[in-house]
Structures are given as C-alpha cells and as structure tokens.
Computed example of a mutant assay.
Amino acid sequence: MAIALIAVLLFEAVLLMAWVAGYFSWGITLFNERIAASPAMQARLSLGSLERDLPQDKWLRLAFHALPDGSMAFRESFAPSFGLRYFPVMRGRIVLNARRHEVRVIGLCSWFVAILSLLLLPLVAMRPMVA
C-alpha cells in the first residue's frame, strides 16, 4: 500500500511539473468561483500579473501556465521556500468567459490527498486510537 501511495505521489508530481492540460481539467472540485469581469478587466488578466500580484507572505508561491484551450492552470510552486511549508492540496484552472463577462476559478483536489483520505478513513473507523 505504501508503494502505491508513493507511486501516485510521483506520478502526480510529474503531471504537475509537465503542466499536462488534462490533469488540470478534471478531478474532484474543491473550489468553484465565478467572478464578474468587464472586457477591460479581462484584457488586463495575464500570467505575469497573477504571479506578481498574489501575496506571498503566508502561503507558498503559485505558478501559472497557459493551456492550449486558452485557460490558465495554476499550482503551488516547487521553488524552495524558507517559511511555513505544507503539502499541496489543490491545483486548478482559470477560465475567461468573454461571452458571459466572467472569470471562473476552479480548484481541483490532489490525487494523493484524495487517495490517502480514502485509505485512512476505514482505518480510523476500525481503530479510532490510530487517529
């Protein structure tokens, strides 16, 4: 079981680093927000502005990448940090919808976190002292 978890963790890391478009398109949705945005606001939205404008004092730095369908993928950066480090739980996409004048932010759950949760749930139910 531990080998399978390590394999999932490594496979997911490769998908994240390679920016595989399909990996950022489907999964368990943790966050789905629609934000109204005028055409002028949508025109100002760029990868550089997203990376530069996010606060970085408390959380890991986010990395953004343009996908072939015109949307933008995001994930926690693999850059070394000296602050509080946590295990990344979410990756996602930012989709511009010019017709509806909105920006949609979709956050998807990490495979490793989902599988680890599913494996630990029966263990905790059978042996509560393990938790």
Rank of each mutant, 00 (worst) to 15 (best):
A2L: 13
A2G: 14
I3C: 04
A4I: 11
I6D: 02
I6N: 09
I6P: 00
A7V: 06
A7W: 11
L9C: 05
L9R: 15
L10R: 09
L10Q: 08
L10P: 00
F11C: 08
F11G: 12
E12A: 07
V14K: 09
L15V: 03
M17G: 06
M17Q: 11
A18D: 07
W19Q: 04
V20G: 02
G22C: 10
Y23V: 07
Y23I: 02
F24V: 03
S25W: 07
S25M: 14
S25I: 07
I28G: 08
F31P: 04
F31W: 07
F31I: 11
R34F: 00
I35Y: 07
A36S: 07
P39I: 03
A40Q: 05
A40M: 01
M41S: 05
R44S: 06
R44K: 10
S46A: 04
L47P: 02
L47N: 10
L47D: 02
L47S: 01
L47A: 01
G48A: 10
G48N: 05
L50E: 01
D53R: 11
P55G: 06
D57P: 05
D57W: 15
K58E: 11
K58L: 08
W59T: 08
W59R: 13
L60Q: 11
R61I: 08
R61Q: 09
R61L: 14
L62V: 02
L62M: 10
H65I: 03
H65L: 01
H65M: 14
A66R: 14
P68R: 09
P68W: 02
G70C: 08
S71E: 02
A73G: 14
F74Q: 09
R75K: 15
R75Q: 12
R75C: 08
R75A: 13
E76I: 00
E76N: 12
E76M: 15
A79S: 10
A79C: 05
A79T: 14
P80C: 03
S81K: 10
S81Y: 07
S81E: 09
G83D: 04
L84D: 10
L84K: 09
L84V: 11
Y86M: 07
F87Y: 13
F87S: 06
P88K: 11
P88I: 06
V89Q: 13
R91G: 05
R91T: 13
R91E: 08
G92F: 04
R93V: 09
V95A: 07
V95G: 02
L96A: 06
N97K: 08
R99K: 12
R99M: 01
R99Q: 12
H101C: 03
H101I: 00
R104N: 13
R104M: 05
G107R: 02
L108E: 00
C109T: 06
C109S: 10
C109D: 13
S110G: 12
W111K: 04
F112C: 14
F112E: 05
F112Q: 09
F112G: 09
V113I: 15
V113C: 08
A114Q: 11
A114I: 04
S117G: 14
L118F: 15
L120E: 00
L120H: 00
L121Y: 02
L121R: 13
P122S: 08
P122G: 01
L123Y: 01
A125L: 15
M126L: 15
M129R: 15
A131P: 01
A131N: 13
